[in-house]
Design a binder for these strands. Structure first.
Lengths: 146, 146
DNA sequence: TATGTTGTAATTTCAATAGTTACAGTGAGA
DNA sequence: TCTCACTGTAACTATTGAAATTACAACATA
């Protein structure tokens, strides 16, 4: 089961804000057009990013700005802002292993730390990459077009 | 969005096969009882593990055995056997970024390699852990009960 | 051949994502 | 102060995928 597109949508939103902030007013409709999803999906993602204090949204007049330097926003910050993981756990563990069975009783003892170490490896790499990195490479690709 | 329980169910199956192979005939019903899911879910997972040549299943008479030494089966082998990722990609990228928008056209150029490096970090750690590790710790926890 | 099991199709249930419609609330500018 | 574009959010629908469930043919051994 793939991780939902909320993560890539959020990154796209932030990249577009930075790229177009001086040329256009970046609204949910503007972003919905670039990303090609429904404006309400954008607004919901905007709210998640706002709750995580990654962006500030201007009510009434519209538009939004990124709250802090892009090299201080990691992909992990973005992931955690928009991707709801139950109990923060990447892997869904089957819920009711049978405690009448020795393996059922003890599988968590044997497996939980391994699952955590895997999730941790993913998160460490997410933390190594900042929004700045994505924006820089995307804008370089745009520049190269011309 | 969490990764489905197929992964932990598959690990549970393999751990139970090793733990009980000398005491019981390990059938889909037996496993369904320990894992507490429907027997058909077990059989479907068995088929995925069989296709990946991680287990051999005995038709008719019932039961199954692990195909190779447990220290040669990594969690990545198990993950890839049972977890269907579209195009092998962990992250679902929003499908139709607007090519009329510079960011829409170039977001893949800026982001794909980062997403891959994150997935890769996860997979490297999965490859570092073998079924043997899980079985050893689970059986140690069982032994400790007594 | 009887028995217990696997393999698998078909259907249902459930949960989550995403799309859609609708509209009240907001704030800046005419 | 009124208008207007936009945000914030509720409500509902559509779609998808996981998992449960029922059912039964295929199979292998005793």
């Amino acid at each position: 089961m793939q991780i939902s597109s909320r993560f890539t949508i959020a990154i796209h939103i932030l990249t577009a804000i930075d790229t177009f902030q001086n040329e256009y007013k970046v609204t949910s409709d503007f972003l919905a057009n670039s990303i090609n999803v429904n404006p309400v999906v954008i607004r919901r993602t905007m709210q998640a990013l706002k709750s995580a204090e990654l962006i500030e949204v201007k009510r009434g007049t519209g538009g939004m700005v990124i709250s802090k330097p892009m090299n201080e926003i990691t992909l992990l910050d973005i992931f955690q802002a928009v991707e709801p993981l139950e109990n923060g756990q990447l892997f869904h563990f089957h819920e009711n292993p049978n405690t009448a069975c020795p393996v059922g009783r003890n599988i968590h003892a044997g497996l939980d730390d391994k699952l955590f170490s895997i999730q941790n490896a993913m998160e460490v790499q997410m933390k190594n990459i900042t929004l700045q990195d994505v924006v820089k490479d995307t804008q370089a690709a745009i520049a190269k077009e011309n």
